[in-house]
Design a protein around this nucleic acid. Structure first.
Lengths: 205, 205
DNA sequence: ATTTTTGTTAACCATTTGGTTAAATCGTAT
DNA sequence: ATACGATTTAACCAAATGGTTAACAAAAAT
């Protein structure tokens, strides 16, 4: 049960409980009763603060999405040398996700189950990622001759894959490689440097 | 609705329908009625063939897992040069997953929601992946001086990430990069060669 | 042909689940 | 104190959902 800290408002307690339950069980698997129990409150109180399950879910989901996507967008927008961008991205993104290791799977799973909802709710007015700048920067570097010829789309996929996937497959990696929580954290910490090195080694001439 | 082809047994029709519904909605979100409708049969008939939802799910889930994991295991076991292993893995694995693009997310998601179930059911008697051989092979190559010094665990994570993640983030990539179904297939087809090249460029001396 | 087994269905049942209501409690301004 | 709005709860409700039953149809065995 989520302990109600002093100065924590009931709404915050509910949100914390809802996040925990939704992220673990997903929209469909989550029970309003579970969330109420987790928050240590009556089920009716949930509906007092958030009209219904859908509304509550939306708050949690959007918060999660807002935590994950803007940072990805930033690697397109930033006005920095390519290699530096890559290094910054890995460092910052892994830091973010390490504090919320289950968010990526949660978000991607819900997107998968209803892509339209996501498209409408998350990328409605917000800045839909625009890869053009990143693409151009790649082209420029290729022409300058600083990096090998590579399809920017694949490079982007590689970068995102190596950064995010280990968190999505976390339980699998842990079970299979016999990693505990601490070892996993260490490994992810290492990847902040490992991934950029791996990428740069691959594309630099 | 799943059309009942001539010579398709009812059980197969049910399994096809169940797979479709389970993979799209997950265990919790799937409704027995949906599966029945999809299969074009009565709901009671589901329980005639498969005692209950859990049993039916187990069949689908295990089938999915069996399709995804043995191939991963093979890259550890195979007795081939490292670079060749990597090339083979990407080629074969992407081929498998292209025929079932939604399986990885489905399986990883369910594992995440109940890792113990997975551990017990899938890796019960079956060959639990054993990374030792792969690790040794890496060490050998490093000592031979054919590749750079790299932590095998990270290399493994990189390989699996780049191969699998694009399918997990498929809707996201499609929406964001404006890819249709065909373009996505083309991109994945490219990755069969792109990923090995990317990796080998990175680690070869 | 008829009995028996297998496959299939409509109707039904019990439980779960999201959501509502009306009463009670708490905090606070008067 | 007391009135009043905000907060919280117990009890309740209707719909959805997994599962069962008993009857019926089709196929196979006798």
């Amino acid at each position: 049960m989520v302990k109600k800290q002093k100065d924590q408002t009931t709404e915050q307690v509910i949100l914390a409980a809802a996040k925990k339950v939704f992220v673990q069980k997903g929209m469909a698997g989550a029970r309003m009763q579970d969330i109420a129990d987790e928050a240590g409150i009556n089920k009716a109180l949930l509906h007092y603060y958030f009209r219904n399950k859908e509304k509550l879910f939306e708050v949690i989901f959007l918060e999660a999405a807002e935590k994950l996507f803007p940072k990805i967008n930033a690697i397109f927008e930033a006005d920095r040398p390519l290699f530096e961008k890559i290094e910054n991205f890995c460092d910052e993104y892994i830091s973010i996700v390490m504090d919320n290791p289950y968010l990526p799977l949660f978000v991607l799973n819900e997107i998968n189950q209803d892509p339209e909802y996501f498209l409408k709710k998350v990328w409605a007015g917000k800045a839909k990622p625009n890869p053009v700048k990143f693409l151009e920067q790649m082209e420029k570097e290729v022409k300058k001759g600083t990096i090998k010829k590579i399809n920017p789309m694949h490079l982007l996929m590689n970068l995102l894959s190596m950064t995010i996937f280990p968190f999505i497959a976390k339980p699998m990696f842990q079970k299979n490689l016999g990693m505990g929580e601490a070892q996993f954290r260490i490994a992810m910490e290492e990847r902040k440097k490992e991934i950029p090195r791996f990428i740069i080694d691959s594309i630099k001439k």
